[in-house]
Amino acid sequence: MTEASLYLLQQLINGLTIGSTYALIAIGYTMVYGIIGMINFAHGEIYMIGSYISFIVIAGLLGMGMVALPVILLIALIVAVLIASTYGWTIERVAYRPLRGSNRLIPLISAIGMSIFLQNYVVLAQGARDIALPPQISGGWNFGDPQLFEVSLSYMQLIIWAATFVCMTALTLFISRSRIGRACRACAEDRGMTNLLGIDTDRTIAMTFIIGAALAAVAGLLLGLYYGVVNPFVGFIAGLKAFTAAVLGGIGSIPGAMLGGLILGVTEALTSAYFPSEYKDVVSFGLLVLILLFRPSGLLGKPEVEKV
């Protein structure tokens, strides 16, 4: 293989890695939008909180002398998911549920306020500076020609791929097979009717938020380990990117969020590889604008017909 194609392969690997995490976060956006038609502006902050809690648990357990890394990570995962889900549930209960039914701008503004509140809440609680975690999982495979270009696929990347795959499969099964999953789908289609059929829509909506938050927490743990750094403001950009991914794939569609995440991740990796890397965010936002202009229903979404 040529040097150029090896380089490209590396970018694809990196892109798919970052893309899968975008997909995890994007699911939260797409599910909430699909069910109550609202952009949860504060969702990025849930991801950020998931990251922080992961760091706290990992650092705490290491500090207490625990050595078994898989156990530490598992505990961190469980705790982060639990706490992030609680945050997700609370936010919905406190800031969004009372506003349901009012004109669209009002919950959005509330969400923006919530996002700002959470960022600064973490600033006050943990400080505004970057917090670094020494790499926990290192090493990986290298292949390719050492004289041309060595492609590396780290264990961390493999873990991210595996974890994302497991989560996606679990979610898809859950949504299609379980009772709650059916309720989620029914609510997304027609909330009024679902209510009339005796399903507790409030609880279903809360469940949606919890699922989204849980996945965001997983992404928080994974990305926290991958980058080794966290600060209170990582949620903002990650949130926007994940939202772009959700729209790209078709908002309201879970497979769409997955697809959108991967596409966005790869696009970003390719952009930062072949162009000055500062512009990769510009490309992501540009992609968002273009999608909304030319195909607002996204790749896998259905074009919406306006009811007159």
Binding site: A95, L99, I106, I109, S110, Q119, N120, V123
Partner: peptide
């Protein structure tokens, strides 16, 4: 606490006096 209160204010305003 400025920004914290600012965010809180936005949420509360939407709830009680949009």
């Amino acid at each position: 606490y400025r920004m914290l209160l600012f965010g809180l204010l936005m949420v509360l305003m939407m709830r009680w006096r949009p």
